[in-house]
Nucleic acid binder design. Structure first.
Length: 570
RNA sequence: GCUCGGGUCGCCUAGCAUGGAUAGGGCACCCGCCUCCUAAGCGGGUUAUCUGGGGUUCGAAUCCCCACCCGAGCGCCA
């Protein structure tokens, strides 16, 4: 018995489907779909064959149902125009629980694959605190990384640190030249102190052309390979980066590597890219660009500048250099990007084609998170910072835990509150498909009921509570698990591994969130209908306990894919 | 204007790549359930002809075309 009972059963059913088609003498293959619950595991619609067979779908279904399916499937059933594939319930229980027993706590993972994935996510400029608008990136990226690992890929999670460019240089200038006010100094968090200086520098820049020149000359020195200046600027960025990473760590998000943009200048990568691109380029006022028309781009969108009039590189140039380097380090690169990056990436991919490179990074785009007041903007003060959000979430969760569980000690309640608060945040962002714009609302982000992480965590805690009381597990007799609610739960357990793998393959994290929510709902219904501890005979009690343990593993791992911790008690 | 996304109950959302059995969930609202493994739960009720219009098809939320609305982009910025 393997790791993925659903796919195994599906394979058997596909064989039956082919036998049906042979028996019916039809040439167009039908599509096996999942049957609605209560009508078996799989279903085959007969409509497509009606014309060729000159018969009604109902008649075809009854005729097809005479085909004898392979075990563990029971005799086929014709219901209207459908042929339904039902498994023997006792065999189904046995099969599913055998898979879970085989995999143990790793149930849901797929066998190792060889394709090495380099997953770049977050990559926010280290110029200020992380706000919720940007946070969708690490949340999505980290979950995707987890998912890919469940699906068997070796994954390297990388943060590309944009420590070059006007923004960064301006921040450096502000930090080294502006005198902090007492309010600035009162702010303990570096990134928040810096952002205040940065905002002031920005205002100065708008009024003072001389400052603009100064910034430009700093950029030129930087680009020219001034190592001392580079180190100084990087130190400023590093200070902010540490804080960003610290906030992400609170959310359970970590990285395997950091790639500094400035290294691409220092090691000559940028220079080499420019050399390589120059022969392919056109010139305009001393600046160079690639004409990308014919790659699905036209007009201004097709002009891809990579050298400025002043001879310096651009963000895009370095990005090209970066991805050229990435190519050498993995089989597949996946980037999680804001939708505002679409055009630049389309150009990057086109450029690769122009260069004759038969490789391109894969991109996952997400829409922005805005506030009811509008798009998030640090400058306009329309912003919610992630660390504030985390604090608020944990505080609210603590109030809830304290209200419900006065019996627990305070440290215990604090620990649970952290799990719940953090979980609620992550889940809330990741449950929605990435392309959909989100309006951030506190009441949604801190929702602890319904379709929320605490709902799933609660189901997990319930399972753990039963298991704690059940004591040592013996497998019992799985063939006794014939209650409709047990069978439904088994079905959801069976689907878990293939759901995770499909979600990873299609890079759709929210699929796992939906699954986990439906799963928890199934578990709660089972919990209502099937008492475990008092079940008789003991073989049933033990089998139910094993079922609960299997559900516990699915809940735990489903949550784990989303980066949410599953508490044993709450 | 052009390009790319999105438009599903009052609000949020799944389903759309592989078109099929009454379009699932959640929130909110109303009713009910703790001598029984944690009520952050469960059951029931009210709520959508899936933005609009054409088309393809035995069959369309799903595919195609047109229109409308919202978001993003169209820098020698990052």
């Amino acid at each position: 018995m393997g790791h993925d009972p659903w796919s195994e059963l599906r394979d058997v059913a596909e064989g039956v489907r082919r036998s049906i088609e042979t028996a019916l003498h039809v040439t167009t293959p039908g599509t096996l779909e999942e049957a609605p619950e209560g009508r078996g595991l799989f279903a085959l619609a007969t409509h497509p064959w009606a014309k060729a067979l000159k018969a009604s779908p109902g008649d075809i279904a009854s005729r097809a149902a005479r085909v004898r399916p392979a075990p563990p499937f029971e005799p086929l059933r014709a219901e209207g125009p459908y042929i339904n594939f039902q498994v023997n319930p006792a065999s189904f229980s046995e099969l599913v629980l055998a898979s879970v027993r085989l995999m143990g706590d790793r149930y849901g993972t797929s066998p190792a694959r060889t394709e090495r994935v380099l997953l770049e996510h977050t990559s926010v400029n280290p110029t200020g605190p992380l706000h919720v608008g940007r946070a969708r990136n690490p949340l999505l990226g980290d979950s995707l990384g987890r998912l890919l690992r469940y699906a068997g890929h070796p994954v390297q999670r990388e943060y590309y640190v944009n420590d070059i460019g006007k923004q960064m240089v301006l921040l450096y200038w502000a930090v080294t030249n502006l005198k902090p006010t007492p309010e600035d100094e009162a702010e303990e968090r570096v990134e928040r102190r810096y952002v205040r200086l940065y905002q002031r520098a920005n205002a100065l820049l708008e009024k003072d052309p001389a400052l603009g020149k100064e910034i430009e000359s700093l950029i030129d020195r930087f680009e020219g390979g001034d190592g001392q200046l580079t180190r100084a600027i990087r130190a400023v960025g590093d200070g902010v980066l540490h804080r960003i990473v610290a906030v992400l760590t609170r959310l359970g998000i970590t990285f395997d590597s950091f790639f500094w943009e400035s290294d691409l200048i220092l090691d000559g990568s940028v220079h080499r890219v420019i050399e390589r691109l120059l022969p392919l380029s056109k010139e305009e006022d001393g600046a160079h660009y690639l004409d990308l028309s014919g790659f699905g781009l036209e007009g201004d969108a097709a002009k891809y500048f990579f050298v400025t009039r002043r001879g310096t590189s651009l963000y895009t140039t370095r990005d090209l250099a970066y991805h050229l380097r990435k190519m050498e380090r993995c089989d597949r690169a996946i980037n999680v990007l804001g939708e505002d990056q679409k055009l630049s990436f389309q150009r990057l991919k086109a450029t690769f084609q122009l260069m004759g490179i038969d490789w391109a990074p894969e991109t996952i785009y997400y829409a922005f998170v805005s506030l009811p007041e509008g798009r998030m903007s640090t400058r306009k003060g329309i912003v919610v910072y992630v660390d504030d959000l985390i604090d608020e979430a944990i505080e609210r969760a603590f109030a809830e835990v304290s209200r419900r569980r006065a019996d627990l000690s305070e440290p215990r309640r604090r620990a649970i509150a952290e799990t719940i608060g953090l979980g609620a945040l992550r889940y809330n962002i990741v449950r929605v498909q990435a392309e959909k714009a989100i309006t951030f609302r506190w009441e949604d982000a801190l929702n602890f009921e319904g379709n929320s992480a605490p709902f799933l965590q609660y189901a997990h805690a319930r399972a753990c509570s039963i298991l704690a009381k059940a004591g040592d597990l013996s497998p019992g007799e799985p063939r006794l698990l014939l209650h409709p609610q047990e069978q439904r739960l088994l079905r959801w357990i069976a689907k878990f591994p293939s759901t995770v793998r499909d979600a990873a393959d299609s890079r759709r994290v929210h699929v796992v969130a939906s699954f986990a929510s439906d799963f928890a709902s199934q578990f709660n219904q089972f919990y209502r209908d099937c008492p475990v501890l008092t079940a008789e005979p003991p073989a049933l009690r033990d089998a139910r306990a094993s079922l609960v343990d299997a559900a516990r593993i699915v809940l735990h791992n489903g949550l784990d894919c989303l980066g949410v911790t599953a508490p044993r008690e709450m």
